[in-house]
Amino acid sequence: MYMFKYIMKRIGLMLMTFLIIMIMCFVLIKLLPIVINVNIGQDADIIKAQIEARGYYDPIPVQFINYVRRIFEGDFGIGVNMPEYRNQPVLEVFLEKLPPTILINIYSVLIAVPIGLGLGILAALKKNKWQDHTISTTVMIVISVPSYVYAFLIQYLLCFELGWFPLTMNSGYDYASPSMFLSMLPAVFALSFGSIAGYARFTRAELTEVLTSEFMLLARTKGLTRSQATVRHALRNAMVPIFPMIIGEFISVLSGSLVIEKIFAIPGVGKLYLDSINTQDYDFFMMLSGFYTFVGLAAGIVIDISYGIIDPRIRMGAR
């Protein structure tokens, strides 16, 4: 019951924050002068009339009310300024662009979690031995070096010099085909490097702390072997803060990484967002901004809530 109340409170707060940010975004973007891109073979007057008919010249509060009403009807607007998505429903285009982004990020989490945790556990168990030093140093380097630098390295070494993978991701929609999977891998590697290092560092820190705690000594005293004690007591306790982190990562796979998507030419949400910014396409911009904000907020909440669920001793929000 207590948990339920806490969750409700957090969700309520989140929705309020979300609403305020969206209103700010909406007002700020609508305050800008309206940009109309006319391509060859299109009539400027027709496009202008179209935009007027959609209510782009109404007062902003009226526009906002209309916008919200349309959203509840499932209509997120229609593309205006991007030539390839002109007159297409925003939601449809967005859903079409979502799979590559999600797939790449899910693959990278699937690679990163086991390797990262494994390295972290190894480093913690062999603390201050050469294994630990090697892992810790590597992790420090990998965490510091910006992700686009690995992306360049991977692209140059694996894709170009060795020719194992194509330079950029294939276009098309057959996400399950082997050649598509192969073309996604460089981006997956580039993304997972940083995560592996992050998990390894976090796991090592948590596990070393747990390993030195008193219940570990008790576990050994009552006759457990070292490995028994580690698996049954230390790992479980160390997982308390690590697990929420993994869950949070799974939520934020939705948003992905704009830079990596650009380097490997992933036809995903990131490119759509950058294009909508560069062409000032209002409906796309609003929808995607909302999406990114929502994913960020939701990841935060899920992390907090999962703490309470994993370890009932933690009473979230208690004073």
Binding site: C25, L28, Q280, G296
Partner: peptide, 19 residues
């Protein structure tokens, strides 16, 4: 400060740049 920190940096810079 919670509200401000929830706004993705990308949106902030985009809006500022456009304005």
């Amino acid at each position: 400060s919670d509200l401000l920190s929830a706004v993705p940096f990308m949106i902030v810079i985009t809006l500022l740049k456009l304005h």
